[in-house]
Structure formats: structure tokens, C-alpha cells
Design a protein around this nucleic acid. Structure first.
Lengths: 338, 338
DNA sequence: CTGAAAGCGCTAACAC
DNA sequence: GTGTTAGCGCTTTCAG
């Protein structure tokens, strides 16, 4: 399959085909006017030798490397993976490869990686990381385009592709309403996170659309954990407030809620419907019952980021600011109405 | 910081410093004998222009790209991430970068990526993926070294770096024994997986070391899921067999076991100790109580794989066959003895 | 239609 | 000590 112990060059192919190096190049790249017979001869020789053009040499000449750097500020995690996959899909179509750099939040490392990426003459850079709040812009005046995905640059002149938390919350709450629930509580993470704020805003907007108010008048805020979801559910039950729907701002919280409710003798989804956020398979499927949840469409997000970057590389103006990707609701049994 | 809109070359630096390109190269790479004053002049000029040597050009000449390809057969997941992180640590020290390719189990894609990696003249390749059974070897006769990590090549002539499931199971069971349990059950995944077989072997060896036999005489085999862990726990309880320890072959199974036991009125760890495998934070911490578990040391594994690859690239013979990385036990409350 | 020559940016060898 | 030359592998004029 790859019998070439030694690297074959155009010169080798040219020699075997009995033509010049220039002709080999034209034949293999379909450029220029060549006689069909010559072309075939070259192709045959190339195949016989297992010729692989050296992309370094090509890049040196063309000024394009067909490489994009992916700089993850935080460590790669659950959120970044689908993003990478989506980006790879979009890039693969353009025959580009991804150079992965994980700076782990260390600015020194980040500068180092940035330097390396530029030294390797990547065609563009995608900056990503843990989806929380903003991150400092890499700055302007780069020799290559930069797109931020999942993380927001603090500079308006950059383009950031983000998921739409407000939209996601609206989908969740509207679904609870559509399945007949009217008394809806919101259990969420720390209020200082923008995600928390956006999800709260979406929740309030969907509730007011329907003319109902939030149970307890305010969200229950805590950690992004199952334990908090359980505890919040218990608090809700003990408060004596009537409620028939809970929007948990993460799958972990929502799963904790289902556990807390079940252990309080409350049936999900019969008595209370529960919706989460993330569509994180392990949590969602292990939950009892399986969770209806909001999918953040991260692979779509990666796809868009990569596509925008490709456009920018082609010289197209991709604008700046924030582009939000809508979420998608995934219905499972935690909101079933049989 | 990176003001270079245009790419600066050695020629530019040479012009500014009033020397020749060759001298610039020597000055920047600390080669040859240069007068200190000249060296300083060049360094100053390079700094002023924000010079970044073009690694493509360097690679073309040196025959080394300082790139390694990472080919993941399956999609990148929970297991591959720590591995990548570990590999990056080892590679970073050698100033190498990672080119990430995710073939998603599609052989066509894999061949395509392999071709691209070779065309880019990577210095070496790490093959990884979901840790299950074997995978077909990429074959011999590559122009660059290849190391398999987490996945095992089906060709003995390749080097595969793997975690040690048997050792992990021994650690788990010995710990249960050391905390005073004698009647230990094993709940695990499908027997056709090699991981299942190795974990069973380790379990049996640790038990026989202590002269005790497995509760029920055989493992309970099922899915790698919480649901199966719960169900197996219930079966165990209903069977009427006495038991005071359970080794679950994954954190998901073990967590399911703790839930099943608690819901049967059995106290973990007072009446039964439970140990899992994976040290998967989300599962382990959300478990009630938090799980004692076996850490597969995947980032260590990635580190070793990258280190071996670097050696091979340097021309050192790294041997072949299987190198197993020992596991590490992480003790939490599910086996506490107060 | 095909070949020869130049050059992408860098470094190693050899002059001076 | 420093400049000059050649060449890594490829593509692209420009002759022929």
C-alpha cells in the first residue's frame, strides 16, 4: 500500500516516464495542455512509484500550507470535541489539516503556540476553549485570519461563533409549556457565568410570552452538578410551592433533579416534566427517565467556524462581532405526556 | 506583539543588519563562529522585524518537519483526550506539533489521512482510538515510525502502548480485600471485549492470591452502563448470596451498583464496598458515595507513546510488541472503612 | 505540446 | 569571521 521506504520526487517520476519534472507537475495537477498519452504515461509512473507530492515544497512555493491551527485555551474537553469534529468536516472538504495546540489556559504557552503556528505558516487559526464568558483577543494585525469558536473574543473586531443559550432556554421552556406545564421552576448554575444569564433571560422571555411567571419568582442558583440538582429539587419540594415543570440549565443539574424528585416520591414525567441542556449522552441516557434536553449544536458550530475561516482565507470579508448558532431540542421521556 | 502583516524572511533581516543571509542563519541558530557584535546586530534586526523563520523551508531542507500525525480510528472521545494531552506534553518538549486526523472508523478516510500525513512529511505517526480489542496494522515499510497507543496493532512487529487491565483489576480487588471484604462479586461488560477478559483475569488472580472465590462463581456480564450496574446489583441482592464487595469493571457500572444497592437498603461502604474503573470525574464524583476507582493513567500512556515515537524518530530502536502501563488506584468513599 | 530555468526561504559547504 | 553558492521538491514562466 505504501511501499515507498524512500520518498519519491517528481524527478524520479519524470525519469521513469521519460519526461521532465515540469511536465510531471502539469500532468499530475491537470494544468497546461498536454497530450493524453504523455499524461497517462506520467500518471502510470507516479502510481508505480507511489509518488506523494511533498506538501512542504508545494507550500513553500504557493504561500499556502492548507494547515489551520486550532488553539484551545482550556484543555480539550467534552465541549471542544464535537467542535473539532465539525471543524474537521468542513476543513477536510477543503483538503486542510488541523494543527492542534492545547495551551491549558497558560498565556505563556499560548504565546508560544501562536508563534509556532505562525512559523509553520498556517493559513488561519481557530481559537476555542471552555465556553465561559470572554477571553482576551489575540489581537489584530495577524498575517492570517482568526476565528473564535465557542469562546468569545473581547474585541468586537474579531469574529466569534457562539451557541445561543437564550434561544436554547426558550426552546426548553416552550416545550414544557407545550406539554401542558404551567408552573415552571428554573434550576441553574452560578449567576456570574454568562451562560447562566443567557439561559435565565431565555427562560423569562418564554415564560412571559405565555403569560406565566417563574415558580418562586427567581431561579435557584448553585453549582453545575448533579448534587446541586438533587438538592435544589428537594428544596423545591420542601418549599411547598406547586410546580409541574423544571428547566435545569445543564444535563447534570437536570439529572440530579430527576433523582431528587423520584426520591421524594414525585413521578417524572407524570407529575413534573424536566428538561436539561447539553445533550450529553452519558448523563442523558443514564438519567431516570432519559432526559429531554437542549443540544448546543457544537459540531455545527465548529463547522461554521471552519467554513468562515476558509472564506476569510480565500480573501472574503467575513465580518466581525458575534454569530450565534441556534440550539435544537431533543425530546426524551422526562417530558413525555403519554 | 505580532505586527508582521507580511512575512519577514532572512533576506529582510540580512538587509537591515547589513550582512548576508547565511550570516543571519548562523547568528540565529548559534552555529559557526561569529563575532559577538555581528550576532547582536542580527538578533536586533530580527527582533525589530518580528522575524519568524519559515518552518516549511527549514523542513524542506532538513528533511524533518517536527510534525507528528495523530490518527484516531474512532472519534476522539473521553479516552483519547488525556492521551492527546500526555502526548503533547512529551512532544512539546521536543518542539514538535501534532497534526490531528479523526477517521471515525472509516477505512477510506483513514487511508486518505495517512496519505496526507505522509505527503506532509510528518516525522512519525501515533495511531490511537477507542480502546477495544485489536486494530489492523497500518502495515510495515513506512517511511516514518509508527506507534500505537491505547489500541493494539494486530501485527507483532508494531509497538503498541496499552494500559494494563489485569493489573488494574488486581489493584481494585486487593483493595477490597485489604479493607476487610471477603465475599466479592464482579460485575462487568461483554465478555467478548478483551478489556472484560483482562479485568476478569486480574480479579480471579487477586482473589486466588487471597484464597477466596468469586461470589456466584462467575462474573455478571452485561453492558457498560449504569442501568446494567443497577440491574446486576438488584440481581445479586435477590439471589440471596452474601457479599460485601463489588468490583464493577467501569465507573458507570460501579455507579449503577451503588444506586441499586442504596435503593435496596444496603449501605455503601458500610455493608458493601464498591470499586470502579476509569476515574471518570463526572461519574465518580456524582456517585453516592463517590467512587473508589482504578485510573487507567491514559495521559501517562500518551506521554510514553510520544516519547517512544521521538526515540524512534531519532533512530533509536524502540522494539515491538506490547508495552503495558500500570494503573493506579484512587481511593474514595465507596470503600471507606471509618 | 514539452523542456529548461528560475525561485519559494532556508541552511550547509565552501570560498574569501 | 563572513559572503557566496548550491540545493531541498515543487510549480511556473518562457523558450523551443
Amino acid at each position: 500500500m505504501f511501499p515507498s521506504r524512500k520518498n519519491v520526487t517528481v524527478a524520479d517520476v519524470a525519469a521513469l516516464a521519460g519526461v521532465s519534472a515540469g511536465t510531471v507537475s502539469k500532468a499530475l495537477n491537470g494544468r497546461g495542455e498536454l497530450r493524453q498519452a504523455t499524461r497517462d504515461k506520467v500518471l502510470a509512473a507516479a502510481a508505480e512509484l507511489g509518488f506523494q507530492p511533498n506538501l512542504l515544497a508545494r507550500g513553500l512555493l504557493s504561500g499556502r500550507t492548507y494547515l489551520v491551527g486550532v488553539l484551545t485555551t482550556d484543555s480539550i474537553g467534552r465541549f471542544t470535541i464535537p467542535l473539532l469534529t465539525g471543524a474537521e468536516d468542513a476543513l477536510g472538504a477543503g483538503q486542510m489539516s488541523m494543527l492542534l495546540c492545547e495551551s491549558r489556559g497558560d498565556p505563556i504557552r499560548e504565546q508560544h503556540y501562536l508563534r509556532v503556528l505562525l512559523a509553520r505558516r498556517v493559513d488561519g487559526i481557530i481559537v476555542t476553549g471552555r465556553s465561559s464568558d470572554m477571553r482576551p483577543s489575540l489581537g489584530q494585525g495577524f498575517p492570517v485570519p482568526v476565528v473564535y469558536a465557542l469562546v468569545q473574543s473581547d474585541d468586537e473586531r474579531d469574529l466569534s461563533i457562539l451557541h445561543d443559550d437564550e434561544n436554547g432556554a426558550e426552546l426548553a421552556v416552550r416545550h414544557l409549556l407545550a406539554t401542558g406545564r404551567r408552573r415552571i421552576a428554573h434550576i441553574t448554575g452560578p449567576l456570574r457565568h454568562v451562560a447562566t444569564q443567557h439561559r435565565l433571560a431565555g427562560t423569562l422571555s418564554a415564560l412571559s410570552e405565555a403569560g406565566v411567571s417563574m415558580v418562586g419568582g427567581a431561579p435557584l442558583t448553585g453549582e453545575w452538578s448533579e448534587a446541586w440538582g438533587r438538592e435544589a429539587a428537594l428544596r423545591l419540594v420542601r418549599s411547598g410551592e406547586q410546580f409541574d415543570g423544571v428547566f435545569g440549565a445543564s444535563d447534570q443539574i437536570a439529572r440530579g433533579v430527576t433523582d431528587g424528585l423520584r426520591e421524594s416520591g414525585i413521578d417524572v414525567p407524570r407529575q413534573v416534566g424536566v428538561v436539561g441542556v447539553d445533550n450529553w449522552d452519558v448523563i442523558v441516557e443514564a438519567s431516570r427517565p432519559p432526559l429531554t434536553t437542549v443540544d448546543l449544536q457544537l459540531s455545527e458550530l465548529g463547522h461554521i467556524a471552519a467554513t468562515r475561516l476558509l472564506s476569510a482565507i480565500e480573501g472574503v470579508d467575513i465580518g466581525s462581532g458575534i454569530e450565534r448558532v441556534p440550539c435544537r431540542l431533543v425530546v426524551r421521556q422526562s417530558t413525555a405526556t403519554d
